[in-house]
Nucleic acid binder design. Structure first.
Lengths: 229, 229
DNA sequence: GCCGCATAAATCGTATACAATAATGATCAC
DNA sequence: GTGATCATTATTGTATACGATTTATGCGGC
């Protein structure tokens, strides 16, 4: 019941949302080409609006726009992956501290619901949805801190993290982070800013170290892999 | 000789650069409407490319896109102004520290040249250009730190700062910041990361406090002001 | 049989045309 | 004279059409 019937969304917003969701849930793998005509036909709009949507996604680094070549689902490099988490490490801990000092009962309930849903999704084996909810948890904290500018950056970084995790995540089974979110919420609810900051910092570090950034991402680099479908 | 003849720029990039420059130099005041037809005629392109450019500028928060109403030069609120500088305070000091640890002779020379040009512009009374160069100084530090992701954020924040300064700057005469840049460069050149971090932090704080964020921006809020032209 | 080049197909970049929406001004009632 | 309603105008939103560039394909030479 948060951002429901906006009703006046500008056409391309719908396409952006659909494509972003598809990328987050990995229904669209990194490197996949997004043909303007095809996308337009799928959603029943012309190339004009598709192009606008692709441009917005390119701003978020979710797609890579190559001149006269087209749009492709982004394939974050190892360097980019590190940078995204370094940026998060700079932004999120302090934001969590601010959030702790502003938490309301409604905020606590909302975050608790996020965590519950996340656990449910995990139990149901839907790791894609769990990851999505996990991201929303972080974004919600930025919103609670009432820092729209930083929240926008974090939203983008979380989105990109989703792609990065899709590429470099190794031990998918052990989603240890849900416990991290539990502890974080306790600190936030208690209004313990410094603790929330520290927990967020180590949480992000855990996330980064759980990625295997030495190997190339598990994207079909070679054709043979891609054809084993 | 940095980013000269790219030659293969995608059309709208030119419009983005021109409009951004115009906004930075405040040849376009906050709140001014950017009619698609007019802009297109000025630069000899169709509305299609103008719209793409406006969308990019909107992503940087340099223009405000209102549905079915058009594009307007952004008018950052007081809250937004604070948020921008808070975000910079989170990102730039640590980035300056990283830069200090990576400085090369070429980087030092480049930054020195920026400062020199800034002083020259000040002596010539061209505060607009001085402000622009001052922004480039910050962006260059992020580039030196080899953090593309953070550099992109800082670029956007510096751009927005330019608008904010246009709105809320009070003591234009005393551009004390140039000295701050001198000290910062010395710390960077000496490879003194912690000092650079500290200097950047206080520099940003100085900038923020030099703004008058209690009053509304000096934009024609009332019609009478606007008509006294 | 393999490589390079010319031609053909596909796709993107841009311009133009039409439709939908909001702003403006005029007419009429009161 | 003031207010509201409706017609007109202007501007944005979207679709389509054309040109430019890239990619794929087929041919000839080596």
């Amino acid at each position: 019941m948060a951002r429901q019937a906006q009703k006046q969304e500008s056409g391309d917003e719908r396409i952006v949302a659909r494509l972003a969701a598809a990328i987050h849930e990995h229904r669209l793998a990194p490197g996949v080409k997004l043909n303007e005509d095809e996308v337009g036909e799928v959603y029943g709009v012309s190339r004009t609006v598709v192009r606008a949507a692709l441009q917005k996604l390119a701003h978020m680094h979710l797609v890579d726009l190559r001149r006269n070549r087209g749009a492709f689902v982004a394939q974050p490099t190892v360097k980019e992956a590190r940078e995204v988490f370094e940026a998060r490490a700079l932004l999120e801990p302090r934001t969590a501290r601010s959030a702790a000092e502003r938490m309301t009962e409604a905020d606590i309930a909302l975050l608790q619901r996020h965590i519950d849903d996340e656990h449910k999704a995990l139990d149901a084996g839907d790791t894609g949805r769990a990851l999505h909810l996990s991201g929303l948890f972080h974004i919600e904290i930025a919103r609670i801190a009432d820092q729209d500018t930083i929240a926008e950056f974090i939203t983008q970084l979380v989105s990109r993290s989703s792609l990065i995790i899709a590429l470099y995540w190794q031990r998918r089974a052990a989603l240890c982070e849900s416990h991290a979110h539990d502890a974080l919420l306790r600190a936030l609810a208690a209004g313990n800013g410094p603790l929330a900051e520290e927990l967020m910092k180590s949480h992000l570090l855990d996330l980064l170290t759980s990625l295997d950034l030495r190997a190339r991402g598990s994207v079909p680099q070679s054709l043979k892999e891609a054809l084993s479908e």
